[in-house]
Design a protein around this nucleic acid. Structure first.
Lengths: 175, 175
DNA sequence: GTCCGAATGGTCTGTTTCGGACGGTGTGAG
DNA sequence: CTCACACCGTCCGAAACAGACCATTCGGAC
């Protein structure tokens, strides 16, 4: 019945989102990801439909399917799911972040630093602005979950660091 | 003969490393990655054996195989490969970095911030020390490629930013 | 009403990626 | 000589992924 699956970060994202919503369809998850998590962790939508299915197989979720029309699938945490999620959240992690930065790659292999810098600065500045807007909007609404707020702030910090770094490069200074 | 493949970041890593070495076996690449690039971009070793094969099929690399013993494969850039590499390096990129940080994920979903912070601080501090050592060693040797130096410095900056962020969290302050 | 287009909701397919197990080959210490 | 260990390479199954495609609903123009 419950063959043993290994739970990936994506699995926990799905579990956590469904846990938060009570009951949700994959589409709801897709929306939720786009509005929040998507800011710092991408999950392709095909994944978001496939993962709940896998999780249901492993008894982490229970599934209820609409009869007519869209035949939506609604998912809920099972007890096993609740437990898995709770355990994961309770366990802090020292695991390292992984950073994949195409700009760094070119820099590493000898791409022209100044030209790279100006391209990178453009996108990082834009991103910073977006995040700043987001952060401001959140100030207004006090019921924003603390975790969300903190991750946005973390994002701000990183964008600023990137901008600092590339600015120095652009100026031809040693960073 | 030269069916059209799409070149991924991994492809360019392989091309660039082989370009730098003149001629190399996949194992050489594996070593090279481990010593340098691995600091900020992971490439699973199975990839490192598979990719040159694909690239050779696309005429980006030429292959020469040892007769006896290990039957090592030696790869070299073809003209097409040189061109592809040159073009890639010359073209700056505005593409965004992708950051996948398991700690952030837990923070986002409501994991205990202080406990997370102390676990994360431990690994980031360790990483910072490693990078500092690396950077110092490089100061001595003036023939270290500039790109390598710069990416290590970028890494230092990010580690410091992470430490700043998590320290604030640990202290219970608003970051 | 009814027709159209947009937004919604879901599925499928062909490739890549990835981790990890496993299997040969050389070599030097005893 | 031979055993242990480092070196070097291959293979496999499970996921991840991009992105095309299909079906349903809804809201407004007419």
């Amino acid at each position: 019945m419950s063959s043993e699956h290994r739970l990936s970060p994506t699995s926990y994202i799905v579990l956590a989102l469904i846990g938060g919503a009570g009951e949700a369809t994959p589409y709801d998850l897709k929306q939720a990801v786009a509005m929040t998590l998507g800011n710092f962790w991408s999950v392709p939508h095909a994944q978001i439909y496939a993962e709940p299915e896998r999780l249901a197989e492993g008894d982490y979720l229970s599934e209820r399917r609409e009869d007519g029309g869209r035949r939506r699938r609604y998912y809920k945490l099972t007890e096993k799911g609740e437990k898995a999620l709770g355990d994961w959240l309770a366990e802090p992690t020292g695991e390292m972040a992984e950073l994949r930065d195409p700009g760094m790659l070119k820099l590493f292999f000898g791409g022209n630093p100044e030209r790279l810098a100006s391209a990178q600065l453009a996108t990082h500045r834009q991103r910073l602005t977006e995040l700043e807007t987001l952060a401001e909007q959140m100030e207004g609404q006090p019921q924003v979950p603390r975790g969300y707020l903190l991750t946005v702030r973390a994002g701000l910090g990183h964008e600023r660091e990137w901008i600092r770094f590339w600015s120095l490069i652009e100026q031809g200074e040693e960073p």
